[in-house]
Design a protein around this nucleic acid. Sequence first.
DNA 1: TTTAATTATTAGGTTAACCTAATTTTATTA
DNA 2: TAATAAAATTAGGTTAACCTAATAATTAAA
Lengths: 227, 227
Amino acid sequence: MKTYREENYLKAIYQLANHDKSKVVSATDIAHWLEIKPPTVLEKLAILVKKDYVTYNKFDGAQLTTSGKEIALNIVRRHRIWETYLYKQLKFSWSEVHEIAEQLEHVNSDKLIDRIYDVIGKPDFDPHGDPIPNKQGKLPKSDRRPLSQSIKGCKCVVLGVSEHSEVFLNYLTDLNIGLNDKLIVEQINAYDDTLKLSTKTKEPILMSSKAAQQILVQCLKPNCGCR
Amino acid sequence: MKTYREENYLKAIYQLANHDKSKVVSATDIAHWLEIKPPTVLEKLAILVKKDYVTYNKFDGAQLTTSGKEIALNIVRRHRIWETYLYKQLKFSWSEVHEIAEQLEHVNSDKLIDRIYDVIGKPDFDPHGDPIPNKQGKLPKSDRRPLSQSIKGCKCVVLGVSEHSEVFLNYLTDLNIGLNDKLIVEQINAYDDTLKLSTKTKEPILMSSKAAQQILVQCLKPNCGCR
DNA sequence: TTTAATTATTAGGTTAACCTAATTTTATTA
DNA sequence: TAATAAAATTAGGTTAACCTAATAATTAAA
């Protein structure tokens, strides 16, 4: 029996672990993420450990087991399918879809998800470039990496973003950078890694390293030398 | 704050009250309906009374207040819109639709319901002939009434059913009676009210009064004399 | 390396939603 | 109408999910 609460814990652990792979996922991190207090999380973690969905100790933090990861990826799958559906079929704006998908992802009907997935054309990625896990929980392969890893001269295409905040997305809109746009890295400032990019706009644009870390791109030439 | 549990209580009271208008809705009736025990219902009714969604006493049972009815009708609206959507757009069979709609009806987004309602073409009735309340909770007008109220010679059209059980729907399928079919009441047995009906099939068919009570029809001639 | 600050954990409490068993009230029937 | 059956209610208990406050453990700083 997996309740929507358990689904949310497993999803949170998955997301936190993927957000920063070097950092352990502490009970406190989960508590912040879910906007509840650490003791509540500890209590629930004990249950999830007993159910063999996670392992936990204070040094390695919470880690998903195989079956825990399976559930988490299934929720991520549902979430991204619903987001895509809301955006593409029902014409919701990208900023509206997340909150509704948070609810829809817990509707328990595999057949419903299958039908919705059919309707949107069985894509491998959602409209923001995030991969949609398949039914077995496998993520589609892609060579997406942060724009910040580019070397000078790199030609690449924007496949997604790893930050979804309103302010960041508006910033990209202002710069006139969108999904599938091509970028050329003209220069990299040696002091602070600011990038000078040529894009479809006339003028080259300057972008901070901080922003470039959140933009996911793929090189247009194989073995182009980027990290 | 209305949780899905409160929504389900209010919907249950609405449905029980409408199922048999002469009968009061007792706490025990609600308990049966929701598959929980009477003391649990009593406890929750006290809360719903305090919130002014219901009135309750053992003689009149539970009755929805104006604001309680508003919530209940909104859930009924969502439920019927989702059922129609699943059936018409996503090609689910009628027997599959109910269970999924029970979950979807609690997704809290008016905009989502609006969009879905647009997609199905803003109908007044769902595919089984049940009326879809509007946003203000008003039910579309119709002259639907049980077939059992027909007088001899009545010509009418099938608009829906008030029982949705598998066995009853299969029975209708066997008789070859479907939505929008025309019926003529040829004879009414004076002893047990069995109906002899002519339909699109060659042979006239016999139908028990019990079954006729569950079929909703509308007379094809105004003031035809039926009750 | 001791102290101070931070972080993790335990202890103990609350509320909502459920339950069973006991009691009271109402309805039925002999 | 008194006895019995049925239904409604109350009493009291459990579990899950939350909390705050206290304590223990770890990390950082003096």
